[in-house]
Structure formats: structure tokens, C-alpha cells
Amino acid sequence: MRELFQRFGGWLASFFLILVAIWLVGMVLAPNLMTLDYALRPNLPPARIGGPEDSYSLANFAYLANEAVHRTIFFKTVWASALVTLTTFVVCYPIAFWMAQRATRAQLSIALMALIVPFFVNEVLRTLGWYIILAYRGPLNAVLLGLGIIERPVRWQGDLGVLAGMVYAYILFMLLPIYNAIESLEKAQIEAARDLGAPVWRIHWRVVIPHAKAGIATGCVFTFMLAAGSYVAPALLGSPGSRWFTEIIYNWFFEGGDWNRGAAYALVLLALCLLVVLVTLRIFRVNLADVAK
């Protein structure tokens, strides 16, 4: 704080602080408090708002706890997001390692371009791309049929489609933190481990992954939060059997017209995400400050 004032002088520093305060109060604290307020109140017609029935209760949360279908979808969203996170990690780790330790300068530029350029297109269109690829009469089924790998078209849309779409959508959020972490690992450490007789898996398990721990935790936290809060991929690539919890929240708000219940559902999802983040950080023994870097 003092450093801020020393560097920018009183006026500018105060201005920065006020901006941050406006952001925190106006964009983070106030909406969440309003959501909480909604969640605790019953859904009433406008005329009866403020009347005797309008009192705080946990009824909206209790509704979720007692509604078996919603509860199932909630837990499915949790473990499916975890699966998305794991799959994204498995896809990204080898690419990040190759980019950080093996690729030449030219290869690195090409790889980064190939990874970043698709992100110039917005998320809905990118997901629509997958929608076309995975369509029942789409190119993927055509190629697999043509090669004789499958005998009749596969319905990709559903759990597999959602997984593919999400892994693709969040690849950079996993890749870049891990790449950054592995890039700072001294090559000689890998060589030393090899020279001492360690096979490839042990070099990664004992030297590379511990070094990249903070980056891996960051990537996993990002990907999990984005996956759990995702709407486009399950909406476009899913099937009725692969509904995401965010879709139910959406329904309460915009189709059911019950903002109070929607707010309660949204808060439960938020609480869950925070819990997962904190537990993950504890497991990896990483501080929140390391992730912020």
C-alpha cells in the first residue's frame, strides 16, 4: 500500500484504490449479496412482496436438497467437471512439456499460433464448430464410416460431445500456466535425473511435476470453475441425458420465472466451486497468491 503511494503520489494512488473499491463493492460484493437476498426469500407476485409472507427462510435450498433429479444433475456436474479437468490436464501436460523443454523456437511459435488463433473466434461459434463435427450426419461419423471403424453412425452428442467441447474450450487455461511453470525448469535437472538412471515417468513424477505444481493447480482450478459454470457446451453439444446444472439455473431464471430458486441454485454452485478450489490448493499445498501470479 505504502509502495503504491510512493510510486504514484497521493492523487493517483487514491484514484486506483477507489477504482478497485468500486469494482469489488459494485461488481463482486453487491451482486452476490443481492443473490443471497433473493435466495433466502420466497417467490411472490409483485403485489405481495414486502407483505407478511416475505420473510427469510432456507426453503429454496431445501427444495434443491429434496428434488432428486436436480440433486443428481448437481453432483453429475461436479464429477463431470472434474473429469473435464482431468482430461484437459492429460491432453495439455505433454503438449506443455514439449513446448517448454523440447520445441525449437520456430516450432514453439507455430504451436502457440495454432493454439491461440482459434480463440480469436468467440466461444459460441467454436462450440458450433464441434456441433457440426459431431453431428449425426457430420464429418466425424462420415470419416469413421469411410474407414470402416464403425458400422453405423454414432450419436456423439451427449456426455462425450460435452467432454470434447469443453476440453477444447478450456485448453489454453490449462496449457499456459503449465507451460509457464515447466519453462522455468532448468534443462540440466532433467538431464541429471536421466543420467542418474531414472526412467521417463519417474523424471516427470519426481522432478518436472513437483516443479510445475503451482502451474498445474492454477490450470486445474481455472478449468474446473469454467467447466462447472459452462453453459454453451452442454446446451449445444449435450443431450437431454447430459444436462448441466447451469442449464437448470437458467431455466429457473428465464423459463420458470422463479429468480429466488435460481439464485439459491447459483449460490450452491458458487459455494461448491470455492470449496473445490480450496481443497485443490490444500492438496497441492499451493497458496492462493501463487495461483494469482
Partner: peptide, 21 residues
Amino acid sequence: LGPNQRPTAMIFQSLALFPLM
């Protein structure tokens, strides 16, 4: 034969100790 299959051990200029062990 790779470095893990030879009866040699190397001491690197930077030493390359594993800092987290």
C-alpha cells in the same frame, strides 16, 4: 546406449540439484 544405461555419472556446471527434495 542412453545416459541412464551407461556406467557414468555427471556433475553439471550448474550442479542441477533438485531444489524441492
